[in-house]
Design a binder for these strands. Structure first.
Lengths: 220, 220
DNA sequence: TAGCTAACGTACTAGTTCGTACATTAGTGG
DNA sequence: CCACTAATGTACGAACTAGTACGTTAGCTA
């Protein structure tokens, strides 16, 4: 998420297109996540940057395109993390549980990304739809899940009739809800789903749920 | 959701505080769900009403308070539906499955409500927190779940270590995600989670998941 | 080192948007 | 049926906000 490191080698202002672009994206990510697409202020983004509003239009063209660029970069981070998945050396049950846990951890670690996804859904995913980059990448995780499911079914461990996409939805649902809806859930039911001392409880609960579903006795 | 019925007994304009208020709430619900709090336009809400913007300020005080009022009414509808739950005559397994299905159906039937909840979470539930009405009602469903869990555990059917709030979160996660995130999920994975011909599949999947979790063999 | 262009800054505008001051009338209580 | 108030309508303004016209300079290249 933080693409800008070097504190300053300035004095007079230095020209660095890549840094300027990245800094705008960093700040815009926070601002859009904070206030939504309509609520975010271009002037505010510019003010939190070492450059000016002019540069936002210079590099991105406009507010909506900036939002699209923010989404594109955020999804790139996810895809990268998924590429580092290394669970296929485990037995199917352990592999799925590990995968669920990694998904859980990733959601917890990137609340801003969760907010951006919520916001993009309010806008009916029109920016994803309009982005060539986001058009058709598909998640690397899906193929991993697919292979684990195959293997688990072959060995008779898994009895459930789901494909990788459905299982991914199931796992993501819980992880996403826990982070995205923690405020209303907390306000209404008085329980903080993201309280640190409850973390292990929910992480285990998710794994138990998924494994129970996949391995349930379906002879009845 | 539709609180305004009578088509017209007008001619000259009639004064009806209750109808005007309700009509504003109806229109505002749609507008806020469509565009979010910042994206919604007070003028647009007024235009879609048989009254004027002036009345929005007369009855609600401002945009934010109108949003709070919209949320209050939306949650009232949910609570009402939960009060009509009638599942405790069933055995615990059937009761939980039925409850999950009703939750599923309710989410599907009220996509605008789902959007409002997403939006309220972007604003960190500050309107719920600031509303006396929404402050501490708690869901009637929670008590139903609590009693079913007790009964299921007593008979040895349920082995899982969850309370009613956690189970409610689990069920809601899936139902909520399926509706709220259908756009990004569809755009990224090419699958419409809310496609009518997949409805039964996902409804069954949810029930299977919850029951499998609650009844899993935990002797290992 | 001259000159050229990518990168950057300033200042402004056109349009929007929330909110309100002021005027008016329907309907009710006395 | 008169007066009073709750309910409603009109017109407007102040502030904000996305976007741009125009001007400047760093630093590379020939």
């Amino acid at each position: 998420m933080t693409s800008v490191e070097e504190p300053a080698h300035n004095g007079g202002r230095i020209r660095d297109a890549a840094r300027t672009r990245a800094e705008i994206l960093d700040v815009a990510t926070k601002e859009f996540a904070r206030a939504g697409l309509a609520g975010a202020r271009v002037d505010e983004i510019a003010a939190l940057t070492r450059t000016t509003k002019r540069m936002i239009y210079y590099y991105f063209g406009g507010k909506e395109q900036l939002f699209t660029a923010v989404l594109e970069r955020a999804y790139t981070v996810i895809r990268q993390a998924e590429q580092d998945l290394d669970v296929e050396h485990l037995d199917p049950v352990a592999a799925i549980r590990r995968l669920a846990e990694l998904t859980f951890d990733h959601h917890e670690a990137h609340p801003d990304f969760i907010r951006l996804v919520s916001i993009e859904n309010i806008h009916e995913a029109e920016h994803i739809a309009g982005s060539e980059q986001l058009g058709r990448i598909g998640s690397p995780a899906l193929e991993v899940i697919h292979r684990i499911l195959e293997s688990g079914r072959k060995s008779g461990l898994f009895t459930a009739d789901v494909d990788a996409v459905d299982l991914h939805a199931m796992i993501s649902s819980f992880c996403f809800f826990r982070v995205a809806n923690r405020h209303t859930f907390g306000a209404l039911f008085g329980r903080d789903l993201t309280a640190p001392d409850q973390r292990e409880h929910y992480r285990t609960m998710l794994g138990d749920m998924v494994i129970a579903y996949l391995t349930a006795d379906r002879t009845a």
